[in-house]
């Protein structure tokens, strides 16, 4: 194990993939030469190491970048392309939604698209809503795309390597605030399986399901609740598609309560899917209504107090947990 930031862990995964397999290449806006010199950025230093044949700076052309990935993967390469910020994925969406996700199906299984789209996400940059907008629920709604959203350096490395070598198209979301967060990371060709959630804190009173940077909000809330004698179990989904339902359901059956937390907006957010699955498959175990803690249904504001107001914090989580723990809201069994 070695101590790395999440950005360096991602860089280590890209480096490993490039060294393991000649069919892997990286393309995107500024993936070779970036305006940023920060060594914590995932593609930092890769152009110098692997050269311009395998680390390709592109024009500002998201549709062509995604088309490059779809076409090259159909020919057997393993493209790893970067869409700089999550809202820009709208410009690449035709190639992802109508092609990467559908062409294998419509070919009757003849085509394969082993591509990875890395996309940077997150609130708290003061960049405004055209640079900050978590669209994971859109991606999750498209059959044919896998969706990975790690919360820490170790998972980031292991899941990125699994994504690159997965035979299906994968959208891999990187929470930018985590780029600078350090952690212990396995060396070498370390993989975390896609489709497996992780119980990051065991508890008995209430289950909280989250992913990405919001997992840290949940863990902070869990510490506060612990001082009040409430034991919160925190599940980090890590992969949104395919979803590890049994991890979530097993936990609900143990605790009887469920809170879902994400930095994306509430309405039709990914949390709604978790709530629906809990209702369909663990109704008898639920002692209280499922609660969602999510951003308000507005674009991400730019002014600091408003941006902070937008992002769900640990106080909102503790409040929601206390609400479902209140004996007056308990369901009569």
């Amino acid at each position: 194990m070695v101590k790395l930031s999440t950005g360096q862990a991602l860089q280590s995964a890209l480096d490993m993939a490039l060294s393991l397999d000649e069919t892997v290449f990286i393309a995107g806006e500024g993936v070779g030469t970036s305006i940023h010199l920060d060594p914590n950025l995932p593609t930092h230093g890769l152009l110098e190491k692997y050269g311009p044949k395998r680390v390709k700076d592109t024009p500002v052309s998201e549709a062509a970048i995604a088309g490059l990935a779809v076409g090259a993967s159909a020919m057997g390469l393993r493209p790893v392309v970067e869409i700089m910020f999550f809202p820009f994925i709208t410009l690449a969406s035709d190639m992802l939604v109508n092609h990467a996700a559908k062409l294998r199906y419509m070919s009757g299984g003849k085509n394969a698209f082993p591509l990875t789209v890395r996309v940077k996400a997150g609130v708290n940059f003061g960049a405004g809503c055209q640079h900050s907008h978590n669209l994971e629920a859109w991606i999750a709604h498209i059959p044919g795309l896998k969706l990975v959203f790690p919360s820490n350096p170790l998972d980031a490395k292991g899941l990125l390597l699994s994504s690159i070598f997965d035979p299906n198209p994968v959208v891999f979301v990187e929470e930018m605030l985590l780029y600078w967060m350090p952690g212990e990371v396995a060396e070498g060709d370390f993989r975390v399986p896609i489709g497996k959630a992780s119980v990051v804190r065991a508890g008995k009173d209430c289950t909280l399901v989250s992913y990405g940077g919001a997992v840290h909000t949940a863990l902070h809330a869990a510490e506060i609740l612990d001082t009040e004698g409430i034991s919160l179990e925190v599940i980090d989904l890590r992969t949104l598609v395919p979803l590890d339902e049994s991890c979530v359901l097993d936990s609900i059956k143990k605790t009887g309560r469920l809170i879902v937390l994400h930095d994306a907006t509430r309405f039709c957010g990914f949390g709604a899917e978790i709530a629906a699955i809990a209702s369909e498959k663990a109704f008898d175990a639920l002692k209280a209504p499922v609660m969602r803690v999510a951003a308000p249904d507005i674009p991400v504001p730019v002014s600091p107090p408003q941006e902070q107001f937008y992002k769900p914090d640990s106080d909102q989580v503790t409040e929601a947990v206390r609400a479902v723990m209140d004996p007056s809201v308990q369901r009569r069994q």
Binding site: A63, V70, A72, A74, L77
Partner: peptide, 18 residues
């Protein structure tokens, strides 16, 4: 999807060049 074949073809041609 009208206009999709050019970016798809660019990807295929990239693989040929690569």
């Amino acid at each position: 999807i009208v206009g999709a074949s050019p970016p798809l073809g660019v990807g295929a041609a990239f693989a040929q060049q690569y």
